[in-house]
Simulated assay, not measured.
Amino acid sequence: MFSNLRQDLQRYCDNLGYGTNPDFISKIIAICKSPGYWAIVVHRFGFWINSYFGNGYKNPLKLLFKLLYFTTKQFAVFLTKIEILVTADIGPGLFLSNQGNIILGLRRMGVNCTIHHNVTTGQGVEGETPEFGDNIWIGHDSVVYGALSIGGNTIIENGTVLAKSLPDNMVVGGNPCRIRNKNIKAGPYPINYQKN
């Protein structure tokens, strides 16, 4: 959990221009300025509780942690306008927009993903949640729903409605969703991709 949180925080430090080795004060400033990071911290705490203690409720420590998680989640959702499904297995290096209005209902998300504001993934129905690969970039005002799989290094442009699986290295956009580019060479920050 703590290793993932450090990598998440590094994304926010990079975004604020603090570089790859920010000092302690820069990290504190990044945390204070980044409501998206607050939501990630709460999610990782809830996911750790479920992973560490399992499904049973007989452990009193788990009940205490669950109560703490539920309370902090409600507070975080109110402050950040970001809600993440507690069972979502999210890799390190997640960056969520500080503008909020994000709902992440998903099974799994790889490393170094970027989600902008006004994005909804999943429908909140059991088995109807998507799975994302590494280095996914989702633009604002987008919706991704259904039991689909998005390959790594994929860019989903602003205002996209996506309901079908995609292979790796794609750029898609629009409503209905259309392929804009295939086989892009994108990395963890794919906003600067090259169009053919």
Rank of each mutant, 00 (worst) to 15 (best):
T87N: 09
T71G: 09
Q123M: 14
G124L: 02
Q74K: 15
L79W: 14
T120H: 01
A88W: 01
L106H: 03
R108E: 07
P92R: 15
I90H: 04
I90A: 03
K81E: 12
Q123I: 11
Q99S: 11
L94I: 10
G91Y: 12
I84H: 06
P92Q: 15
G93D: 12
H117G: 07
S97Q: 01
G124Y: 02
N101D: 14
N112P: 09
L106C: 09
N112A: 13
A76G: 10
L79C: 12
T121H: 02
F95E: 00
Q99A: 12
I102D: 00
V86D: 09
L104D: 00
I115P: 00
C113L: 03
D89S: 10
L104W: 03
R108N: 08
V119F: 06
N118D: 12
S97F: 01
G91W: 14
N118A: 10
T114N: 10
T121N: 00
G105Y: 11
F75G: 06
M109Q: 05
T87P: 01
E83S: 08
L104I: 07
I115E: 02
K81I: 04
L85Q: 12
I82R: 10
V111H: 14
D89E: 08
I115G: 00
V111P: 03
V119Y: 07
F95K: 02
R107E: 11
I103K: 07
L104Y: 04
G124Q: 01
N98F: 04
I102M: 02
S97G: 04
F70G: 13
T120N: 09
G124H: 08
R108F: 10
G91A: 08
L106Q: 11
G93A: 11
F70M: 13
C113Q: 01
E83R: 11
A88F: 00
T71F: 14
G105A: 11
L96Y: 01
V77L: 09
F75I: 15
H116E: 15
S97M: 03
L96K: 00
M109G: 09
T121W: 05
I103T: 12
G91E: 15
G105V: 06
